[in-house]
Design a protein around this nucleic acid. Structure first.
Length: 824
DNA sequence: ATATACATCCTTTTT
DNA sequence: GGATGTATAT
């Protein structure tokens, strides 16, 4: 072994057999099936480092693709650590940012300028809405969101407008296809691309310009992909084009070229992959890493068949399975294995660990959502007492709506928590407003940004006026910037003309700061403000437009927070400026303001909440949806709301997406290192009155040996005193509790509360701080005063239970009451 | 043009 | 429960 080899071999130390195998893979297609917690990032980073150290290629000849910025950053960081040197030159990017980078350079070839704007889903929704309205479609039946999703699906499956129209069978599909046509036309007119276009247009580019494709194919000798199970057909084709023999011969508009389009017909045809003779050979060095069991983005057109059929697509592919788990204890893995075993569409695998059995997975049935929340919180407290940091605990749920009860209980217990999800920073209205100003200054053709800011803050330019200006712009093929120079031409009334005039002046002033000299409306000026920083520009926008002063003047307490967000945006821009100047140290000279803005917008468009999604740094319990939990791990995990209709979600049940739901549960289970508890509630208030719930079918699929269930009914959802229908109707405020030792009917009511769903002391905890000592209840004990879950008081007076409705209102109380009445 | 009051609708969402 | 959109009034 020569010294180079020895140097590279260091990178193999500490890897297990299959991991090492993957890292050393000589070349050609490689699929690594990486079970949860099996060290897939390790394999990826070590392979990148190994390729470089063993001299197989240069750092700059590797492209590593991920789905999130966070994953990309981590990958880069860890490769840097392994190599002990800078990773500049290494392409680690998300699919979208890699494409955006390519498209900036090649935009002209596709009829765009390199200043094109990237529309986020909100922007594109607005544009779709406008298109639908222009078409005269009924936006009740064709909601902008639904239509946008359909269009997105078309794009992700690489269906052109024409293909979509050809495919459209019914009226609905045709309307969608027409909207797609109009929308796409508008995007080009706006010099804008949506997220899906970043992929799709790059694919277009590669297909239409073989020389361009060839250039990139040569630039990257090795391509590595993370989370391959989540790739959609567009991403799949992108990889093909980068690595493989020319797959394009020809999937023309009318041809059978829709690849894996199930709707389009042949389930098994795959025009993308047919290896074609006589073309220049691709390097074929494609390594993909993923876990089919964690494919949970089907609703966003991710196609699990990409990972399931990898060997069919690439007959010479090597497949390596990583099944040793370094995260969880065996009981948790058993639960995961048992559950996922119920899926048929999968690659069989069996996770194992050397860490030992650990705790059993606890499954608990709760009276209702409040009891569930309270139980979770009491467990959080218990574990905290055992030394598990709050930041190492997470509560996971299917839908965001389920977080509320948990939040309430955590607050009452005075425990710190963070909720992941909800509105992202860059999606907040005020932040988007500010960014839209910047976007419009940068790309005056951007009508969405224009429509957004023209009357914000309120300037007396109403919807009708905005509509007229947009129409005018569209029909005369002119940008909104030119429209506001002569608003009367768009047919505005005098008051509106005046208001627009004031707005135009503000914009002129801002353009002057950005471009230096005043220029004729339109195409970016010549010499632009030399050392203007983006942060200054943000501030100028807020000042000149009166946006900031409007908020400062406001009485609304929420506006305080909005100002803070704007300050945060400013701080973010300052950071960006600092990085820019630091990086541009050598030779580049001072970058002009316009170009800085260009880079700034590019970056922010593809940024999400970046790093906020992590373990609560210190002392914070984390709450989030299962989707958000992918890739994370915690010492203790609580999976709540395991009820049919919630999880699996009713819409998934209806549309036969149970396997994906099951994978989602699998993801949840495998987040836990040592402690896992799964709960469901007999009754839950979602929207409106509480509904009876049935335990999730997934609970029945968990292997009993791995579980700790309080009672048989925890699984079945049946009261232990089974028998006839009862307890599901409405009742008076008085119920009776059976008494004495002789049940009044066969298998009749027991006399204690255990069958009421109140099984343990913790179910009867007082939630009010100043309430009398919370009476907990133990089997066999007589009960006099009970504090019910939401704080309502239940007093037992002999046989009769009297319920006091206080400030909370009665609908929550009925839940507890149903069970009491059931005994009567 | 805008403020307010009522109705309506609810998955998940890496970019 | 709440955010969004439409109808109505000013």
């Amino acid at each position: 072994m020569n010294s180079v080899d020895a140097y590279a071999a260091e990178l193999l130390e500490g890897l297990n057999e299959p991991q090492r195998h993957a890292v050393q893979h000589p070349g050609g297609p490689l699929l690594v099936i990486a079970g949860a917690g099996s060290g897939k990032t390790r394999v990826l980073t070590h392979r990148v480092a190994y390729l470089v150290r063993s001299g197989q290629c240069g750092l700059g000849e590797i492209l590593a693709v991920t789905f999130t910025n966070k994953a990309a950053a981590e990958l880069r960081h860890r490769v840097g650590d392994l190599l002990g040197r800078s990773t500049r030159g290494l392409w680690v990017a998300t699919f979208h940012s890699a494409c955006a980078r390519i498209l900036r350079v090649e935009a002209e070839k596709l009829g765009y300028t390199r200043q094109f704007t990237i529309y986020d889903s909100d922007d594109s929704k607005r544009l779709v809405k406008r298109c639908l309205e222009a078409e005269g479609a009924d936006t009740k039946r064709f909601t902008p969101n639904a239509v946008r999703n359909q269009i997105s699906d078309h794009k992700n499956r690489l269906r052109s407008v024409e293909q979509a129209q050809d495919l459209a069978a019914g009226h609905y599909d045709r309307t969608v296809a027409d909207a797609y046509a109009a929308y796409q036309k508008q995007l080009v007119a706006n010099n804008a691309m949506d997220f899906d276009d970043l992929m799709g247009r790059t694919v277009d580019l590669f297909e239409r310009y073989p020389d361009v494709r060839e250039r990139y194919r040569r630039a990257f000798k090795h391509v590595l992909v993370d989370e391959y199970q989540d790739t959609n057909p567009a991403q799949y084709r992108f990889l093909q084009l980068l690595c493989m023999d020319d797959p394009m011969h020809q999937a023309g508009p009318s041809g059978g070229g829709t690849g894996r389009d199930a709707k389009g017909g042949g389930e098994d045809t795959n025009a993308l992959t047919a290896p074609l003779a006589g073309e220049e050979p691709g390097h074929r060095n494609l390594m993909v890493v993923g876990d089919d069991a964690q494919s949970i983005y089907g609703f966003r057109s991710a196609d699990i068949r990409n990972i399931l059929d990898f060997e069919d697509d690439f007959p010479d592919a090597e497949v390596i399975k990583l099944e040793q788990n370094y995260r969880s204890t065996q009981h948790i893995l058993d639960a995961a294995n048992g559950l996922i075993g119920h899926n048929s569409n999968q690659r069989p695998k069996h996770l194992f660990t050397e860490e030992g059995e650990g705790d059993e997975v606890r499954v608990r049935a709760m009276q209702d959502d409040h009891a569930e929340a309270r139980w979770v919180v009491s467990e959080v407290e218990r574990l905290a007492g055992e030394g598990v940091p709050l930041g190492e605990m997470a509560v996971l749920y299917r839908t965001n709506a389920l977080s509320r009860a948990i939040e309430t209980s955590l607050t009452q217990a005075e425990l710190d928590y963070q909720v992941i999800g909800g509105v992202r920073f860059f999606d907040r209205a005020e932040v988007k407003d500010a960014l839209s100003y910047l976007q419009w200054l940068h790309n005056p053709a951007n009508t969405v940004a224009f429509a957004r800011v023209v009357n914000r803050p309120r300037r007396g330019i109403g919807d009708t006026s905005v509509g007229r200006m947009l129409n005018h712009a569209a029909s005369t093929g002119v940008t909104p910037l030119e429209v506001i120079a002569d608003p009367a031409a768009a047919g505005l009334k005098t008051a509106a003309v005046k208001a627009v005039g004031a707005f135009a002046e503000q914009i002129a002033e801002l353009r002057e700061t950005l471009f230096g000299a005043p220029d004729e409306a339109g195409v970016g000026g010549t010499a632009s403000g030399s050392d203007l920083r983006v942060a200054d520009l943000v501030e100028d926008v807020l000042r000149v437009t009166g946006y900031r002063s409007e908020l400062e003047r406001s009485e609304d307490p929420q506006d305080e927070g909005r100002l803070e967000n704007l300050d945060q945006l400013h701080a973010y821009a300052e950071e960006f400026d600092a990085e820019g100047t630091a990086g541009a140290g050598e030779g580049t000279g001072s970058e002009d303001a316009f170009h800085a803005l260009d880079r700034f917008l590019q970056q922010t468009a593809l940024l999400s909440d970046a790093d906020s999604k992590a373990n609560g740094p210190e002392g914070q319990v984390t709450l989030m949806t299962l989707h958000n939990a992918k890739g994370l791990e915690y010492d203790a995990v609580f999976l709540v709301g395991l009820e049919d209709g919630i999880f699996p979600h009713s819409r998934a049940i209806d549309s036969g997406e149970l396997e994906e739901e099951r994978r989602l549960a699998y993801v949840g289970i495998t987040r836990a290192r040592r402690h896992l508890a799964i709960t469901w509630a007999r009754r839950r208030a979602m929207y409106g009155p509480p509904q009876s719930q049935v335990p999730s079918r997934f609970l029945r699929e968990l292997p009993h040996e791995a579980l700790d269930e309080t009672s048989p009914e925890a699984m079945s959802g049946q009261p232990s005193f089974g028998g006839s229908e009862r307890g599901r109707r409405d009742f008076s405020q008085i119920g009776r509790i059976g008494r004495g030792s002789s049940p009044s009917r066969p298998g009749g009511p027991p006399r204690d509360l255990s069958s009421l769903g109140l099984k343990r002391g913790s179910d009867l905890v007082s939630s009010k701080a100043d309430a009398p000592p919370a009476p907990t209840w133990q089997p066999g004990q007589r009960v006099r005063h009970v504090k019910f879950d939401t704080g309502e008081v239940v007093r037992m007076d002999g046989d009769v239970v009297v319920v006091h409705f206080d400030d909370v209102g009665e609908k929550r109380l009925i839940a507890g009451f149903a069970r009491l009445e059931a005994l009567g």
